[in-house]
Structure formats: structure tokens, C-alpha cells
Design a binder for these strands. Structure first.
Length: 557
RNA sequence: GCCCCCGUAGCUCAGUGGAUAGAGCGCGGGCCUCCGAAGCCCGAAGCGUAGGUUCAAUUCUUACCGGGGGCACCA
């Protein structure tokens, strides 16, 4: 808002200068207003004079001077504008611009920070998509937190978002067969038979748990069924159990999906075959050595990929192609896939498949998040009792809690490896960023309780005079609150949720400084009222940010 | 060999085509007759190397060096 106003002012000044023959430019440059890094460079700054300098053949500082002389401050929030450094124009604003924003926060409440950048565009965020042959583990946790918050951010900026998880439940896949055989072997063992685990069988204890469940539920009634049929049956039963467990674990993590999409359903409905047919028709599928191949090299992939094996079984790529075609057919105009680091190699082939099917690969955005390592007391944690070689998400949540788990997963850019310090996440101290930010909220609630006990009215920024707010701690806090909508927009458009955790920590920090500096409930009634309004606004923004992050806003800790 | 990510303070990480590169931990020093010290304030300390593009590069680009991960008619 304020940026547009300033940009308009600058544009007006530029046009006037042009008409007066002071600046000879043909095209109006884009005028961007930024918040300067240094504290002594005003509230907003623009580099337009430097951008324009070459075109008008004048020194940048002279151009800036001309613009400033044409700026009228009358009836605006501009206090003054200066030329600085190599040719920046720095704007110093009257405090009223912040008071206006306080009013906006009070009026918009839980909607403060939302926008309509997405214009209701239908977007799907696909994440987690774990094979239903094991529990959700910590790497899925990073993907889960990332996907969930990316979805929340996109929704906040006006997209029509669907959260979706793809179930790799094709019964004929090597992994699923292996899984079924493992469960079957454990089942036989629970029944007392000396039955060997298959080679490369699933070793985790959860396989035994499933086998015990199956014995409890069905006893030995499957023994009469032929072994091959029995294994197939077990694969399905065990898959269903795994899926339920995955849903339970993810729900505990605060992650819920609108759609669980079954790979098996793609095969059974003939959509995989259909996609292959489409690829053939479009000339991007061919036969070689008894198999059918996707001509993905046409679209920048390193090599062509097998769609259908020589034994007639379609590969997962065929199913993935069908799935992505289905996404676009379902009306999604933008698709975001969130994958683990082991999948980076699939970006090229998936985009190639999408392009070969006649969809625009630009509408598919793939986010790869990097590896997660758990540390405890400086030691790398590798093994889990319950799952074998991975740590389960549920174990992590039991250990550090949902909020800490989510927050820690979101603290780093997806592009960075993530070292998760269990001790830190558990510690109830100021070292722990989750406690730090939640404490800010609890502290606010404490102040508001105190004010209520004192019998004070609870003012909002709309019904109180904010002009007593003028010290630097108060100004810094208001500025941070003012940043929120833009931060949400940026984090959403870039699909970078870590910007939000960063912001929340910054906001908590300026609030804590304000708290130390400025006593809220005091003898000075106008000041108390204004500060209470500011505290209220801070609470609103914290709560809105926490909601996006999916963490609690505790009133007491 | 090819592909992806990272290389910023002692450590873990943010950040930006521009003016003085930030935070937490750790380290040193201060602050509670007062709304929660789970807090605040002050201090020391940094853009892997070499080219290129640019008025301006830590940011874009190329090469190299270092770390992590991936390269199936498995999913």
C-alpha cells in the first residue's frame, strides 16, 4: 500500500521532470521501493535514479536531486526525502503510516497477512507420498511440514489449494511384493512355524506388529489358502494397516490431506494405459527390445525411460505420467510436488513426461528438500528400535513434541541439509527458538491478563490515539508488524516456508525488546491504552503466523 | 563420468545486483524493590579460490577446490 503510494509519487515527479525538460527518458522505468538494510537510510528507498542515469545521461545523484525537487509532500505520509550514497532516494515517513497499519491489523484480525495474489487459481500441493510399506519417518516429516506450510501460504495468498498425497500401492511392484512376503513370513513365525524371512525382507519391528495384528484378527484361517494368493492378500491387508498408521502419525503432526490418491486406482481405471496411448499417439513413445520407451530426451532428459517392461508390466514412470496428466485434467492450473533429495533425478523425466503428454511443464514446480540428520548431545542418531534403520516421525514427536518438530523442520531453507538437534528441541530454555517465539505470545497474554485485572478497557488500534507510540522500540515493533503481509506473499510465491520461521523469530525478538524497554500498564493512561493496542496487534500477527506454521499459541507456559 | 544441493562469524544457519552482510549457540561483560529473567542490553569475530558480465557482484555466470546426495526394464 504505502509502497504503491510512494511509487506513484515518484512516477508523478518523473513525469513532471520529463515535461519540464529536466529528464529526457523514453520509457518510464519500473519504480521499486525497498526497505533499506541500514537503520539510517530512512523507511523506504528507491534506486530509480541509478537505473535511469545512463538513459538520461546524467549522474545518478543529479537525477535523484531532480526527482526530489519535484516531489510534493503535502497531504502525504512523507516526512522528507533525501539523496544518499551513490544515488538512492531515501524516504523518511511520518509515524502515521505505522498507526494506519495498526488500524489495518485491528480491522482485518485473522485475515491480516492474507492477499489475493493467487486470484483463486487452482493449485495442488503433493507431498509426503510415502510407500504404504512402512511408517512415516523423519525425512517424510520434513517433507510433511514443508508441504503443509507451503499449502497454507499459498492458500493465504489467494490460491485455491488442494493438499494431496500419492499412495504407491501398486500391488505388483517389487517393493510391495517384498513387503507382503515379509509380513507373511512374520505371520507364519507368529503362528509358530520356522519360516525364513525373504532376502532383502523388511526388518523393522513394525512388520512383526502387523503380523501379530493379523493373527489376532484372523488367526490361522489363511493357512488353507495357497501361498501365492495368501501373500497377495497379506500385501493388501498390511498396506491398509500401514496407510492407517501413516494417517494417524501425520495427523499427530498436524498434517491432513484433502486427497489420498491411489496409484492402484490409476492402473485399475485404465488411466495408465490411456496415458501410454496418448504418448504413442503424440509420437513420444516407441518400442525397443520388447519394451515401450518414453522419448524423454526430446524434452531435455539425459536418456529415454522405460514405460512398459518387456514382461508387459508398466513402470512407475508410466503411472507417474498418468498421475500428472490426471492432475491437470482435474483442473489444477499449477502443481507443486515436494520430493526428497533422492528424487532430484526424476525432475527432468517427470517434466518430460508432462510435456510429452501435451501439458505445460512450467505449471509443474518441483521442490526438493535436502537430507535430515538427527543429533543428540552432538552424536549422530542413526538407529531406531521400532523401525530398523530409520527414525520414525512418531518417535520424534513423542520426544520433542509436535510444535518443536514442525518448527525445526521449517527453520532451514529446503535447499540446505538439516541438522536436527534433539536436545535443543527438547530444552525448555531461551536457547530453543520454539520456546522463544511461543514465550512471546504467552508474555503478551500475561500482560493482557494483568491489564484486565487492573480493570482496563481492552483497546484496539482503531479506537485509541496511537500518537504516544514514538520511541524506537515501539517503532521497530510496528515496522515488523507492517512487514508481515509482504513476508507472507514472498514466502508463498517462492514456496519458502523457512522465511516464516525466520520472521516469527525476528518478531518475537523485537517484541521482547519492546517489553523490556517499555512498561505497558502504567499510570499514564493514554500511553497505556496505545501500548495495549500495540500489544494486541502483535498478538494478532503472532497468532496468524503460528496458524500458518501449524504450531500452538500457548497463553501460559 | 554425468546430475542436484551446499560452501557466509569458532559452530548451526539466514540474507541481498547496490550505501555499514544478519540471527541463534558458544565466548567476554552488564540488567530483576517494576506487566513472566523461558527475557533484555553491550562487545569480539565472516562472504572457499580464480576469471567473466555490470556504473555496482558476497549475490548473476564459468572453471577449480571442499562437503553432502543421486544416477534400474525398483518405487
Amino acid at each position: 500500500m504505502i509502497r504503491e503510494k510512494l511509487a506513484n509519487k515518484v512516477q508523478q515527479a518523473l513525469m513532471e521532470a520529463k515535461d519540464a525538460g529536466e529528464l529526457a527518458f523514453k520509457e518510464l522505468p519500473e519504480i521499486t521501493l525497498e526497505q533499506p538494510k541500514g537503520k539510517n537510510f530512512g523507511d523506504f528507498t528507491t534506486n530509480v535514479a541509478m537505473v535511469l542515469a545512463r538513459q538520461v545521461q546524467k549522474a545518478p545523484r543529479d537525477v535523484a536531486e531532480i526527482i526530489i525537487n519535484r516531489l510534493s509532500h503535502e497531504g502525504t505520509l512523507i516526512e522528507r526525502a533525501d539523496v544518499a550514497g551513490p544515488g538512492f532516494i531515501n524516504f523518511y515517513l511520518k509515524p502515521d503510516w505505522l498507526y494506519e497499519i495498526m488500524g489495518t491489523i485491528a480491522t482485518e484480525g485473522e485475515n491480516y497477512g492474507r492477499s489475493d495474489i493467487g486470484h483463486g487459481l487452482k493449485v495442488q500441493v503433493e507431498f509426503v507420498s510415502a510407500n504404504p510399506n512402512g511408517p512415516i519417518h523423519v525425512a517424510h516429516g520434513r517433507g510433511g511440514a514443508t508441504g503443509d506450510v507451503v499449502a497454507s501460504l499459498l492458500s493465504a495468498i489467494g490460491y485455491d489449494v488442494t493438499r494431496e498425497s500419492y499412495i504407491n500401492d501398486a500391488l505388483n511392484s517389487t517393493q510391495m511384493q517384498n513387503f507382503g512376503k515379509s509380513v507373511h513370513a512374520r505371520y507364519m513365525q507368529v503362528l509358530g512355524y520356522d519360516f525364513p524371512m525373504p532376502e532383502d525382507g523388511y526388518q523393522g519391528d513394525y512388520i512383526i506388529d502387523i503380523a501379530k495384528d493379523l493373527v489376532d484378527e484372523y488367526g490361522d484361517k489363511f493357512l488353507s489358502v495357497p501361498e501365492a494368493e495368501r501373500i497377495l492378500k497379506f500385501t493388501q491387508l498390511a498396506q491398509d494397516k500401514m496407510l492407517d498408521l501413516q494417517k494417524t502419525d501425520l495427523a499427530k503432526f498436524g498434517v491432513k490431506f484433502d486427497v489420498w490418491y491411489s496409484e492402484r486406482s490409476l492402473h485399475e481405471s485404465g488411466k495408465v494405459q490411456k496415458a501410454i496411448d496418448v504418448l504413442k499417439e503424440r509420437g513420444y513413445a516407441y518400442e525397443k527390445a520388447g519394451a515401450i520407451w518414453l522419448k524423454s530426451t526430446e524434452f531435455g532428459d539425459d536418456k529415454d525411460r522405460t514405460l512398459v517392461r518387456s514382461n508387459g508390466q508398466p513402470t512407475y514412470i508410466a503411472a507417474d505420467a498418468a498421475y500428472h496428466l490426471e492432475k491437470f485434467n482435474r483442473g489444477f492450473q499449477k502443481v507443486v510436488d515436494i520430493w526428497g533429495p533422492d528424487h532430484h533425478g526424476y525432475i527432468a523425466r517427470t517434466k518430460a513426461a508432462v510435456a510429452a503428454l501435451g501439458c505445460d511443464p512450467e505449471n509443474l514446480e518441483v521442490i526438493i528438500y535436502q537430507a535430515v540428520r538427527l543429533f543428540s548431545g552432538g552424536e549422530l542418531v542413526m538407529m531406531s528400535k521400532r523401525a530398523g534403520d530409520v527414525i520414525l516421525l512418531s518417535e520424534l514427536i513423542d520426544e520433542v513434541g509436535k510444535d518443536a518438530a514442525r518448527f525445526f523442520f521449517l527453520m532451514r531453507s529446503s535447499d540446505s541439509n538439516l541438522d536436527f538437534d534433539l536436545e535443543l528441541a527438547k530444552s525448555q530454555s531461551n536457547d530453543n527458538p520454539v520456546y522463544y517465539v511461543q514465550y512471546a505470545h504467552a508474555r503478551i497474554c500475561s500482560i493482557l491478563r494483568k491489564a484486565q485485572e487492573t480493570g482496563l478497557a481492552m483497546p484496539t488500534a482503531n479506537d485509541v490515539d496511537l500518537s504516544p507510540l514514538k520511541c524506537s522500540a515501539e517503532m521497530d515493533l510496528m515496522k515488523k508488524l507492517a512487514d508481515f503481509p509482504e513476508l507472507v506473499a514472498e514466502a508463498g510465491q517462492l514456496c519458502e516456508p523457512h522465511r516464516l520461521t525466520r520472521y516469527v523469530q525476528d518478531l518475537a525478538s523485537v517484541f521482547h525488546s519492546f517489553y523490556t524497554e517499555c512498561r505497558v500498564v502504567s499510570e499514564d493512561e493514554p500511553l497505556t491504552a496505545a501500548r495495549l493496542a500495540l500489544v494486541n496487534s502483535t498478538k494478532t500477527v503472532l497468532v496468524n503466523a503460528f496458524r500458518l506454521l501449524g504450531i500452538e499459541a500457548p497463553e501460559k507456559m
